[in-house]
Amino acid sequence: MKKYLFIINPKSGTVSKKHIPELIRYEMDPAIIDTHVSFTESAGHATKLAKEAVLNGFDSVICVGGDGTVNECAQALSHTRVKLGIIPAGSGNGLALHFGIPLDAREALKTLNKCYELDIDSLKINDRFCIGTFGLGFDAHIAHLFAASEKRGYYTYVKLVLGEFYKYNPKDYLLQIDGEKHLLEAFLLTVANGSQFGNNAVIAPFADPGDGIIDVSVMKKFPLISAPSLIYRMMKNTLYKSKYFESFRAKEILVYNNIELKCHIDGESCVFNSDIHVKMQASSIRMLVPLEYKIKKKT
């Protein structure tokens, strides 16, 4: 019999998680899966719980939360045989949406009964772990404002984006991408393992979390009149067709930095005060993915 630990972050997103344990009992076959449930109590607690699951012989850790909680669980499972599953319950749910995991909790639980195992990559950013996206531009600015907001959820995020979009000024970044230096003026600069921020806003159209390659997406300086079309392209996954979009692919990236630089890792705000070294950690996480994703990749 398989042992699954469901780690639930009660503070992620805006919807109550009190009903989740009952859904788990209803959807998971007790003849096949021995389910255990734990609720997080503070930041970093999901990592502690996931590490204990590894030590206690669990087959899988199922994260019920947003991208930040997924990050906490995944870093504890990196380079282990314990698999990661996701029941999306956050504000953005970028990695879950990349893999086509339903946002409805009941439907997401059903995919665990019909899924396959996929080895995916992660990123090491100095001494920090990233599984989805690492941002240094406008997205990082929004992440810091979102972290300071009293309210969470999609509508708070959209309100911040719309309120700040026309105020934010592009910045200059000096990067070394696989040994080659690039000076970039960017509104958005995203280092990506997954394809999107969340809410189907695709910033790295060609990113594949299992290809062993880091994607770097740059939204260059653009006239304000082009803003609506760029937002539309991001939501429709056609940003790569814009002349204001540029992308690179690499194994290793160095961001030269000597200021207090606001960033985000998987949607969680952070600050770097020195150079930022990004390394690929290929096939470091084994993930439970819906069968539909496997079919989609084949086609």
Rank of each mutant, 00 (worst) to 15 (best):
M1Y: 08
K2G: 01
K3Y: 14
Y4H: 04
S12Q: 12
G13W: 04
T14P: 07
V15S: 14
R25M: 08
E27P: 00
D29K: 09
H36Y: 13
E41R: 12
L49S: 06
A50P: 04
V64N: 11
V64F: 14
A76N: 00
L77S: 02
N93Y: 03
F99N: 08
G100L: 12
K114S: 11
Y116D: 05
L118H: 03
D119Y: 09
S122I: 08
N126Q: 13
L145R: 15
F146H: 04
A148E: 13
S149M: 08
K151F: 11
K151V: 11
Y154T: 05
I177L: 10
H182M: 14
L184F: 14
A186P: 03
F187T: 03
A192D: 06
G198N: 08
N200I: 03
V202N: 09
I203T: 12
G212Q: 13
K221I: 14
A227V: 15
L230A: 10
L230Q: 12
M235S: 04
M235V: 12
N237C: 08
Y240C: 02
S242Y: 14
S247M: 10
F248P: 07
R249W: 02
K251A: 04
N257W: 02
N258P: 12
C263V: 08
S274G: 13
S274V: 09
M287R: 00
K294C: 10
K296D: 13
